[in-house]
Design a protein around this nucleic acid. Sequence first.
DNA 1: CGAGGTTTTGAACTGTTTCAAGCTCGGTGG
DNA 2: CCACCGAGCTTGAAACAGTTCAAAACCTCG
Lengths: 247, 247
Amino acid sequence: MTDRASCLVSKLGHYISLSEDDRQRLSTLEKSERSYGAGTDIYQMDDPCTDLFVVKQGWLFSYNDLPDGSRQIVKLHLPGDIIGFPDVSQKHVTSTLCAAEDVVLCPFPKTALDVILRDSPRLSALILSIALRDQIILLDLLRALGSMTARARISYMLLDLLARLKITNKGMSDVLRLPLNQSQIAAYVGLTNVYVSKTLSRMEKDGDIARTGNTVHLLRPEAMEEATDFRDRYSDMDIGWFPANKV
Amino acid sequence: MTDRASCLVSKLGHYISLSEDDRQRLSTLEKSERSYGAGTDIYQMDDPCTDLFVVKQGWLFSYNDLPDGSRQIVKLHLPGDIIGFPDVSQKHVTSTLCAAEDVVLCPFPKTALDVILRDSPRLSALILSIALRDQIILLDLLRALGSMTARARISYMLLDLLARLKITNKGMSDVLRLPLNQSQIAAYVGLTNVYVSKTLSRMEKDGDIARTGNTVHLLRPEAMEEATDFRDRYSDMDIGWFPANKV
DNA sequence: CGAGGTTTTGAACTGTTTCAAGCTCGGTGG
DNA sequence: CCACCGAGCTTGAAACAGTTCAAAACCTCG
């Protein structure tokens, strides 16, 4: 991956082989990259939806504040992710995007999708697949929030993050840098910061995890997968049905 | 809508105008329709994923059973809906489909999407938009399960159902036939059947709703929308960016 | 009329929240 | 170099929303 390589090309090329045409198309879509400091709100809920972003560096999350003052984080964004996809279907964005740490993003215009859909069935299929897979993952999260205990929810979150990181980093161990504070974890799994603290402490005492700074070590991932009925949706997407590109 | 009209054509034609070519393409995809009795599991989690279904009649839901014995309903399917979309990205389906009452479905093969993506950019964009909008709706539900009280969750569910029914039935009032028992409602909003009963009774006593048989009348929908920060994602999808079909 | 599924109601219980205080630790300024 | 500050984490006690269990009431349909 050279320095001038487009974020989009490297992200999508990860799933399927791209024709030279496709590479060209994707590269031209990308605007110059941008940096944001930790804690910055990059766009706000209800802003007009014009750009998508590929994450080049750092973690981010999308959140909503509810009428009663509580906050729900609806998505964590890791390097390589495309941010804002679902909002393409709406005139305005439906959540606020916040940098969890210092980040670098590659914006590209929403209209890019138009071009892709018109000219590249293969890329269209890939993008659709990614959108659908993300939906499956949301359903998994829904099950966790709907009917699991605090402990299982947190386990689930950790397993999910590990699986995501392992896509691009095959040989990875079960150690995880977690650049989120406990209030953010709580807002994600639907608990309070206090109970997240208590639950993490208990998990540590029971030997499920070990913590040092903001890294977490999963000591019995299989047991945790068992308890949460965890499935890895990332490693085996079905891309067998993709159409070939027209000639 | 004639008797021989394809389910898919009438579903998709609802959003955009379809060319005669597109109509032809869609019609040929559809297999003959099928009926199932109330309570039937139509397919089971982990079955191979081959077909999608358009709902012609009746309500259904997709659910998962968790290791601890609890059940989570992840999606309610109403007439006009396409079932199984997210699973296209997987080799096996990720939840079990169950008929909440007597239903009629129109199956069509997963490979249909291949054809559409190759030949019709405009239909591709529509399908992608629907998938993305569904994702937004899931995020809304996630917020509800993650950080709302029992009362707000149930309010949210009712508002969402009403909004969905109003898509195809513009002049509809705030009365809703709800062919689900309280255990199913509970499995959907992440509560127990007992507490659903208690909450519904309280809502009725407070004058938020009225019940007769399995129909529910929303008496103060605006107040409920306020309390749950409800947004109607169905009525105004952004389809302005769709590509025209090639000639 | 009886039977089975569904809803209601009450009492005891539990997981999670709330509030509040104390602790840790890295960063900053005197 | 130390004192102090603030953000985040931990801990405990009290309160509460929602669960569990169990029994009774209700409905619909054969």
